[in-house]
């Protein structure tokens, strides 16, 4: 009976709660949206209003892309912190009841962190390369 109750408790959280398995993929869903927005946005802006090539990397477009990426990284780090905190809280509970929740917390935390690193790595070229050349 305990198992049944615990499992019911696991179903309760909404997709946004740190216990929900959707968190496992949420980090890279955010990364994917950033990726599409960055590549798509770059292409569209370069078509409609390309910055002056003479400006090199110091353009409003690169600045915008950097700002956008930093916001995304901040969001991912916040979510990683939230998942990590949840995971740590589950560590204090018994193995039987929360093994799955701990799994979700741990995997989500790492994937949020890697998504943040992947976003940062993908953003670095805007510091040195002109956007539309």
């Amino acid at each position: 009976m305990n198992n049944v109750r615990n499992n019911k408790e696991m179903i309760q959280p909404t997709w946004f709660a740190p216990a929900h398995p959707a968190q496992i993929v949420m980090g890279f869903v955010i990364w994917s949206i950033w990726f599409i927005a960055m590549y798509g946005g770059l292409s569209v802006v370069c078509q409609l209003a390309p910055p002056d090539v003479e400006q090199g990397p110091l353009t409003w477009l690169n600045g915008g892309l950097l700002t956008f990426a930093l916001l995304v990284i901040a969001l991912l780090l916040f979510l990683a912190w939230r998942s990590g905190r949840y995971c740590a809280s589950r560590h204090k509970a018994s193995e039987e009841a929360v093994g799955f929740e701990r799994f979700v917390g741990y995997v989500s935390t790492v994937l949020y962190l890697i998504a943040a690193v992947a976003t940062l790595a993908g953003t670095l070229p805007v510091l040195v390369l002109p956007p539309c050349n």
């Binding site: 960055m38 590549y39 770059l42 292409s43 370069c46 690169n62 790595a121 993908g122 670095l124 070229p125 805007v126 390369l129 002109p130 956007p131 539309c132 050349n133």
Partner: peptide, 10 residues
């Protein structure tokens, strides 16, 4: 464009 290439290279 170079920036897009660097982006996908990373």
């Amino acid at each position: 464009p170079q920036l897009a290439q660097a982006f996908f290279s990373v």
